[in-house]
Design a protein around this nucleic acid. Structure first.
Lengths: 202, 202
DNA sequence: TTATTATGTTGACACTGTAAACATAATAGG
DNA sequence: CCTATTATGTTTACAGTGTCAACATAATAA
């Protein structure tokens, strides 16, 4: 570990870091491996000593984002240690807020072609509890079992999971991608929907 | 209009058609203007006589998809001429089904970088009623005004719109992109959620 | 000290989008 | 009917892309 004059000291980490920056600045379509290399001050093939392909680098960036996201969800759970329903609501709010704050992560985690690769890879390397969906699912299970003791809420856990997840997923995307136009504070609206009981009541 | 020996008779339409096919087959990332040209049997710059750029061609393809989608929503509305709530439910179901059946349209209409360009362009060229969101919004408004006569349902139309749209949007994406894994029939689950009153009840 | 491995560079290749110059078919004006 | 113009094609060229092979050198192991 000679102080400065080593090849590049820690290129791999810097590639990921600058890569995310470039992804944010230039957008996904204009993102290029060569630009990342140039931004790190190395030749255009240097990244190939650390990643097998362009997709591999993006994957590494996405995994970072994946961790941050799951951490964000777990923080929401920990905010209400003894209240399952509040856990779920807070998780939903955090879910939306995360992608509104980091819209570029949306594509990385869900919208791009690697989204599925990432998911598959995560299923193999990490325990599946690391998956945001599982974090969600478990919270719903806790709510469900709580409700079973009282009156029956829904006889179908899967329906619950899909509708909960779908709702926050959809709102996150609509707001983050600015498809839903609204002249007020989006996150307040989301909070109202999740906490204020503005239910669909069809 | 000499029968066969004309330049290419109707290249523009064929570019759009073969373009959509290629988009479906090869996926968005591997889609290339030159491949479309080759598939149509013309030189690789011929498309530039009909479209200003690659994005322009994709846009044209997307606009087709956009029309189909909106048409799909309107059919759902027309299925229940006198029942606002059923209209909304059926529209939600059609919304999900459309993207489950045509997963490649998802990216075209909502997930890609042009999604916003398309939306903006549509706002200018068509009347805004052509927008799926508006079709949705109007249906919600009808439900809302119906409920106002009875007991108050929600004092916030925007919250209703966002949650309705978010729910179907999210479910469509989760299912179409296979993020939500379920061993049964997805569309039946969706139908149950929308029609069966499997409400969140938080 | 020497052999091996890790990490870099240079150069090449096929592919991409796109612009310029050119060619020819269809059409309009006289 | 002849000619000028326009619409629609092709060829060629260029810069940018991902990736591979060959080579160079620093770090490490024998």
């Amino acid at each position: 570990m000679s102080n400065e004059t080593y090849h590049h000291e820690n290129l791999k980490a810097e590639l990921i870091k600058k890569g995310l920056t470039l992804l944010d600045e230039e957008g996904y379509e204009n993102f290029s491996l060569r630009k990342v290399a140039k931004a790190c001050g190395v030749s255009h093939t240097a990244p190939y000593r650390h990643f097998n392909s362009k997709d591999d680098l993006i994957m590494a960036i996405a995994i970072e984002a994946h961790h941050k996201f799951n951490q964000c969800l777990e923080e929401a759970v920990n905010k209400y240690p003894n209240d399952n329903k509040s856990q779920l609501k807070e998780m939903g709010y955090s879910y939306v807020k995360f992608f509104v704050d980091n819209p570029e992560y949306l594509r990385l985690l869900f919208l791009s072609d690697f989204a599925n690769k990432i998911k598959k890879m995560n299923d193999e390397t990490f325990c599946s509890g690391e998956q945001p969906f599982n974090t969600f699912y478990k919270a719903i299970e806790r709510c469900q079992s709580e409700n079973q003791n009282g009156e029956a809420d829904s006889d179908d856990l899967n329906a619950m999971a899909l509708s909960c997840w779908g709702l926050v997923h959809g709102m996150a995307i609509l707001i983050a991608k600015k498809d839903f136009s609204y002249e007020g504070d989006y996150l307040e609206l989301v909070r109202k929907i999740l906490w204020g009981g503005t239910s669909l009541n069809l």
